[in-house]
Amino acid sequence: MLKLENIHTSYGHIEAVRGTNLEIRKGEIVSLIGSNGAGKSTTLMTISGILRPVKGKVIFEGREIQGLSPHKIVSMGVSQVPEGRRIFPKLTVRENLEMGAYLKGKGQRAKGKGSGVKGQEARGKGEDTSRGDSRIALAEQLDHIFNLFPVLKERQKQLGGTLSGGEQQMLAIGRALMSGPELLLLDEPSLGLAPIIVIKIFKTIRELNAGGLTILLVEQNAKAALRLAHRGYVIESGRVTREGIGKELLDDPAIKRAYLGE
């Protein structure tokens, strides 16, 4: 579904990603682990089109997307929850979610039916989600997110900035799902959250994947991320140094020493 070929991306004067190769197949959870500053976030920002690679290709469903503007990439079905959640603090919870569905208001997206969130919704309710008026589609999508995170429904009129960290993370994920993506990029969703909320977030990620959504998960919490993932990549100073099945990487002594603190 997504393939990075020899990606080099500079951030200011520093080349943060230096020749990354990576592949995500449809329906997978792939974890990208590595220490601070290894180039994980830069990789995600390159996929989303916020940063332009100096060299290399980003191929999404057979199409080269490096150099496309971010909103085009979102409209193709790639959605990102960035590090630090980046909730709009002065927009209400509901408005934050509506912004996630911004492209839908235009009736621009023709792709993405039957997969990802929509697929899950269809399966969950056992009914067809025919797309009619964009307003109805928006209401359906909101309902779906409120089912996933009921606390957001209670808080929908509150300003985003007033939510707790865990609620903000749920809002950030919910907002990214509003566009009905096929591939979800998650950057450090567990960062700074209480363990009980981390468990809930990871459970949600597993459920979303079970519903057909492909996920690229960037984490410093390597143990949890590798347990969840089908496959994993280890990135060190801008290069992928290891890749493999999640469980294999978990049992690897070198990885244990470096990232799992054992």
């Binding site: 089109g49 916020i50 709009f88 002065k90 927009l91 912004m99 907002r175």
Partner: peptide, 21 residues
Amino acid sequence: RTGKAMRAVAQDKVMASLLGI
């Protein structure tokens, strides 16, 4: 929709573009 997007862009341009604005 455009007005809300204006507020979103004023608050965080990178995040707004990650949402397709």
